[in-house]
Write a protein that binds this DNA or RNA. Sequence first.
DNA 1: GTTGACCTTTACGTAAAGGTCAACTATGAA
DNA 2: TTCATAGTTGACCTTTACGTAAAGGTCAAC
Lengths: 132, 132
Amino acid sequence: MTKRTYSISELSEEFGITPRTLRYYEDEALIAPKREGQARIYSTSDRARLIWILRGKRVGFSITDIREVLNMHYGEGGKEEQCRVTITACKNRIKNLEQQKKDIDETLEELSSLVDTMTIFMAENYPADNSL
Amino acid sequence: MTKRTYSISELSEEFGITPRTLRYYEDEALIAPKREGQARIYSTSDRARLIWILRGKRVGFSITDIREVLNMHYGEGGKEEQCRVTITACKNRIKNLEQQKKDIDETLEELSSLVDTMTIFMAENYPADNSL
DNA sequence: GTTGACCTTTACGTAAAGGTCAACTATGAA
DNA sequence: TTCATAGTTGACCTTTACGTAAAGGTCAAC
């Protein structure tokens, strides 16, 4: 069993965030580490949640979005209506993410062609290329 | 030649943003429509810039990022150093976007499997499915 | 018995991206 | 002429996601 635990500074250093950020996430009910006295003790599953949070952020989710998704995972699979709502919410997010992928692809193409154009321009006008 | 022009409300309605937003983008030097007296007159190329802006936003670019990229397109291909900087900046953005695509794919997988799990759960516990 | 490292809470600060509202202008139709 | 419609600027308000002190607890090491 992975009974490893982490202090706030271990975790914040590992992921390149500040302790403040971790406390903020706790305020926002995204993580709920155990306490040893006052100090926060993070478990491996807290760490897993954190990974989700940070990836969520990178894809543009807000704190509220992330909380929603995290709650889906653990949320009461009980009530039928609640289930339906969750499924619908997921599907919406999926649609958004797929649109986002298209947007990214378009942006990537434009940026690439911009790089190409400029590279050619450079080659013509400043041939002393050290080709980085 | 596409000499079509647009008023602020035409454009804001077309893209589902408010006039305030368009003025804000102008304040931030992302667009610079002509004026007819006081009124803003947007050209097709202003519209193209707007499309860039909105897509940039959807992929998570900040206003500052967007301004930078737009300026790259139009920016002085003149100075060598400036060119190099631009190319490097582009390449960095490209890397970020590629990471972002990975993140999106991972998130998509998790969301999909969550939907699957819940759908199965629903089918087992509430078989009266109207299969939406 | 104090220094240092690490932790805590409370509380105010801030930048980004607009929303909202008030007051004014210009134009065209009734 | 007056009303409606669209536009303008300017000022202040709001939310999000933390940053940044201020003020102090705890524990090991010297």
